[in-house]
Write a protein that binds this DNA or RNA. Structure first.
Length: 477
DNA sequence: GGGACTTTGCA
DNA sequence: GCAAAGTCC
């Protein structure tokens, strides 16, 4: 005899609110008057291969612990399975299903190729797994151009996205009702993985909800004006939560619509710029599903294969360490290294500098970002890097090379962000901070301890022309 | 400070 | 024909 229990398998959807797979698991159990269990699977080797940042792993661990508590209140026990690779999942889940008389497994879909292969493999091998689209407001494949294909340009995608979304009720799902008596508070769970303290970030669905509400109440209208200034807290700072699904994009869009009901149809809406950022996220996820080679470190645009990267290892290390001699670049990289997060404007600036000025393969930078970022997300990270390198979709003309000096004076005009992370230049003039001299007279300020600051690693004008020449030669064929 | 530098998808 | 997170002169 079978007891028809159900299993909720949590992955990148670490929340009990607006979680359609969890709701499905609870409904299944209710129909069959049976029980619900939940699992989270830790795969250190797979994560290492995917370059998941230790700080993100720590953030996930904190949320799995909080999730276990929330689920206990609903009468759902959470087990954490420690495996190594995705390929170990089938055997482990099969055992688990037998052990607990489980007949149905529910999980939210994920866009990355290894994750999708794992899931389709499990289904082929007979695991009773039901995947439910949950990581986007509009599921991959639902936003198509008139030829029935995925868009390759953001603006028409976003227009179509809004027109479809405006026809739909965007209503987050409630937390499911308890399925059984509350369970005792679960024991703390620790992953056997490299970990790096993420306590600088509040954790939990409640914290994410508060950040979202506060941002919408007081900042979203100024987002367009303030989002480009790293010294300000002008961005939502929700990316770490979105990346692991502590908050869903549907919750974010619904929260926008609660305050700005016209957001999807009125281009002058105060929330439109931030809404567009959420649509960028969906765009990149849809792209990852439509073009699986993006998950495999390949150029979106075939032409990218022809770029002869310089790939100078010392220059790459200087970039990673924040020692390029361009204060804006170094401040940005040090923010990443010290906090596990970087302001979005600066992500574009440093990516342009690495790929264009230094001609280092965008994959090197993309990988380094994933290794450091608390909000690491393959789709968005890859999309952003390829956009910067000029190998991506939404093609920018190849001669667009960010000028680090212009970007510096435009977006950190008083140098306050730079000085926070590059104290060596604190006493420099603003002009020198924004336009570091190739021959560095500021060495005079170096202290006897030797905390001098490097001269610019590359001269802008030469590097710009060099990058444009490499790319234009490619276009000429 | 406005136009030139460009390619490509999309309607 | 329009647009695309820029720079240069």
């Amino acid at each position: 005899m079978t007891s028809m229990n159900s299993l909720m398998w949590f992955r990148q959807d670490l929340r009990v609110a607006d979680n359609p797979a969890l709701v499905a698991a609870c409904q299944f159990a209710k129909q069959h008057q049976s029980k619900v269990r939940a699992v989270y699977i830790v795969t250190p080797s797979q994560w290492a291969q995917h370059d998941v940042a230790p700080i993100q792993i720590n953030f996930i661990q904190r949320h799995v612990n909080l999730l276990a508590q929330s689920l206990a209140a609903l009468g759902i026990p959470l087990d954490v399975l420690h495996l190594e690779w995705f390929s170990d999942t089938h055997a482990a889940l099969n055992d688990y299903l037998q052990q607990h008389n489980i007949d149905a497994v529910f999980a939210g879909s994920e866009p990355e190729i290894n994750e999708r292969r794992r899931d389709s493999g499990l289904i082929e091998q007979g695991l009773p797994l039901t995947l439910i689209d949950q990581d986007c407001v509009l599921a991959s494949g639902q936003v198509q151009n008139l030829s029935g294909d995925m868009y390759k340009v953001f603006t028409p995608f976003s227009k179509k996205w809004k027109s479809i979304a405006s026809q739909k009720a965007i209503v987050p799902l409630a937390v499911p009702a308890p399925v059984a008596a509350a369970l005792p508070s679960p024991a703390a769970i620790e992953f056997t993985c490299p970990s790096r303290n993420s306590e600088q970030w509040a954790a939990g669905e409640g914290a994410a909800k508060r950040i979202l509400e506060q941002f919408l109440a007081s900042q979203v209208a100024d987002y367009q004006a303030e989002r480009d200034f790293p010294a300000l807290e002008g961005t939502s700072r929700l990316s770490p939560f979105l990346a692991i699904g502590v908050v869903s994009s549907r919750q974010c869009v619904a929260a926008i619509l609660a305050r700005y009901p016209e957001a999807l149809v009125d281009d002058t809406c105060a929330a439109k710029t931030w809404l567009n950022e959420l649509i960028w996220r969906e765009f990149y996820r849809h792209l990852l599903v439509a073009f699986p080679h993006l998950s495999m470190a390949q150029n979106f645009n075939e032409l990218g294969k022809g770029i002869v990267w310089r790939n100078n290892a010392q220059e790459f290390t200087a970039w990673c360490d924040g020692q390029t001699g361009y204060p804006i670049i170094d401040a940005a990289m040090r923010q990443l290294n010290q906090t596990g997060w970087m302001h979005n404007r600066l992500r574009m600036v440093v990516a342009s500098f690495l790929t264009k000025h230094l001609l280092v393969d965008w994959r090197w930078g993309e990988r380094y970002f994933r290794q450091q970022l608390i909000d690491g997300d393959l789709a968005a990270n890859n999309g952003g890097w390829q956009w910067s390198a000029g190998t991506g979709c939404d093609a920018q003309p190849y001669f667009r090379v960010f000028n680090p000096m212009t970007q510096s004076s435009k977006f950190d005009p008083d140098g306050s962000f730079i000085k926070r992370y590059v104290p060596e230049v604190a006493r420099w003039s603003l002009k020198d901070i924004h336009e570091p001299k190739t021959v560095n007279v500021n060495d005079l300020f170096a202290s006897p301890q030797g905390d001098s600051y490097p001269k610019p690693i590359v001269e802008h004008k030469m590097a710009r022309l060099r990058a444009i020449e490499v790319l234009s030669a490619l276009k000429r064929g």
